[in-house]
Design a protein around this nucleic acid. Structure first.
Lengths: 210, 210
DNA sequence: CCATTATTAAAACGGACGTTTGACTGAATG
DNA sequence: CATTCAGTCAAACGTCCGTTTTAATAATGG
């Protein structure tokens, strides 16, 4: 557990948001879990809305930064070999998967929050996500259009969104998938899940255009 | 607008749940919108939780029933021709798409709620969805294993979940996708969206197993 | 028509919510 | 040593929440 109040609030808020949802999590539940005073939330974050933004920024900014780094590395390899669809997808999926692995190891299963935020209601949240995603989406769309020159851009746009959906749903509805699996698959083997997602999305991206 | 109180409540609740989320929608907001008395919710539905279940059941039961009918029709065609992957996917996707078209035509854009419910927090909701989905998922998994005999069942299970993710994210995050599209695609052409989803998921389901 | 049941209505219940206030702490600064 | 100031704290603010109560009003069946 973090030692300073601000990080304790962020940690507890993130965990409870992931477990119960944002709207259903009260500031009192957060401050009780973090063992800090109720008023310290408004002191450090001004409002609950701002706290929500801070929680998401702290987790998503590193992920999206990593995505851009990995993509840049793929596009500027010393040998000049253009990246495959699978490599582009791995660059997009892996940073989230790594967070899933790390936070689960720490006993803080917060990846459901990452998967859920795309569909959380509220215009404030939506515009924040849109601002974060727009440059990442543009970069990956460019890369994919090079790797898949035969796919018209509008169709590639849809297929990138579908690839996002694969990731978001897998981590956002993991508890549901686990219940449906009845032991047929091991949902905790994140590396295997990553492999499965990449193979599926690669097949989807490459799917023949009627 | 419906004439009886019970349906007016269901209609308003469904719309507001879709627009603002379940937790953020109060019974007072629902009864104000439906122009009925506040106490009538607890009279007709006992509790808010039960109202939520009723809203989802009313919309999802016909969808899942239609899914099973379409699948049954595919599997028992007079000519005995086994269904293609695309046909199975269309049977799974179309009932939701039809609801999207119908409710948008009625000026009641509630499809975001259908896309979002997979990731809504709360164990009560999760168990309800799981109960609804389990037989549908089992039926479609069987059909897919016939159409794709080369894919091992555990991998097919993942890929069916990914196909659900494509659908859920597309309709649940449509407002976000629309913002990212910047006019490159027409998100309101549901028949085109359906075609795109089928092509993508078919490619994903057929993707070679390393 | 009356008795009975189903439905609607207004009002209040206790509790939880996000936020604000004002006093208090302890360390840093001059 | 006095002062400042970021941080913490208990308490309260007004508002909204889901639910319940009690009474009034329709609808139904003998």
């Amino acid at each position: 557990m973090a030692t300073n109040t601000k990080d304790r609030i962020l940690d507890s808020a993130e965990l409870l948001f992931a477990q119960q949802g944002i709207a259903s999590t009260s500031l009192r539940a957060i401050t009780d879990h973090a063992d800090v005073n109720l008023a310290s939330v408004n002191y450090h974050f001004q409002s609950k809305d701002a706290l929500v933004q801070a929680v998401l920024n702290r987790r998503l900014n590193p992920i999206n930064q990593k995505r851009m780094e990995l993509l840049h590395a793929l596009l500027h390899r010393p040998d000049g070999v253009p990246p495959t669809v699978e490599e582009i997808l791995e660059a997009f999926y892996r940073p989230v998967t790594e967070e899933a692995i790390k936070t689960r190891r720490e006993g803080r299963p917060i990846v459901a929050l990452i998967g859920r935020m795309y569909t959380e209601p509220g215009e404030l949240l939506a515009s924040q996500i849109r601002a974060m995603m727009s440059q990442v989406a543009a970069g990956y769309l460019d890369a994919l259009s090079i790797a898949l020159p035969g796919i018209p851009p509008p169709i590639l746009f849809w297929r990138l969104q579908f690839s996002v959906g694969v990731l978001a749903h897998t981590f956002g509805a993991m508890h549901l998938i686990e219940g449906l699996a009845r032991g047929r698959v091991n949902v905790n083997d994140s590396e295997d899940v990553l492999r499965q997602m990449i193979a599926f999305a690669a097949g989807g991206l490459r799917s023949p255009v009627q």
